[in-house]
């Protein structure tokens, strides 16, 4: 089961956060901002101190939860957390990235690097999460099987 999602821009600012389940811990907005920028810094440090060439933190697995992050070529990071034992989150992150390119980047009223306030993005994100939750969090879940209107990037 998914817990939380947040999106961090290339300079470490939190631009989107969302609880994906009622079981997710409630954070106030300051905590969210702190979490976003802390993860951004850790990600950068991890990439530098790694003994082999590394692109930073991709996965964290603990006894109680797992976290997976996906960094786009432009430096935006999508981070999702889920309960321990949830199958691979890479597919979901990829689909969320797709929603971002469609409903955020093609929206004339969105300013780059600013917090995401796009109704359609939230709407289709909820739909995506619901679809994956119902499918028992199937890995890489039948992408494109949804009723999302045509959108390609």
């Amino acid at each position: 089961m998914f817990l939380q999602l947040f999106v961090v821009n290339k300079s470490g600012g939190l631009i989107y956060n969302q609880n994906l389940s009622s079981a997710a811990p409630r954070l106030n907005s300051n905590d969210w901002l702190r979490l976003g920028s802390t993860f951004h810094s850790l990600h950068a440090i991890a990439a530098q101190v790694a003994p082999v060439p590394s692109s930073g933190i991709e996965k964290l697995e603990t006894d109680t939860f797992k976290l997976q992050s996906f960094q786009t070529l432009t430096g935006v990071k999508f981070v999702i957390t889920a309960e321990a034992g949830t199958p691979d989150l890479g597919g979901v992150l990829q689909e969320i990235y797709e929603l971002y390119t469609d409903y955020v980047l093609k929206n004339p009223f969105y300013e780059l690097e600013m917090p995401i306030r796009c109704e359609l993005f939230t709407l289709y994100l909820e739909e995506l999460i619901e679809r994956h939750s119902n499918a028992g969090g199937a890995p890489g879940g039948g992408g494109g099987g949804g009723k999302k209107p045509a959108g390609q990037y």
Partner: peptide, 19 residues
Amino acid sequence: EPMTNSFVSVPADLGQLNC
């Protein structure tokens, strides 16, 4: 769903704007 609006979310401060 007009094609122009497929990806557009109009912010609240622009009210009734329809692209």
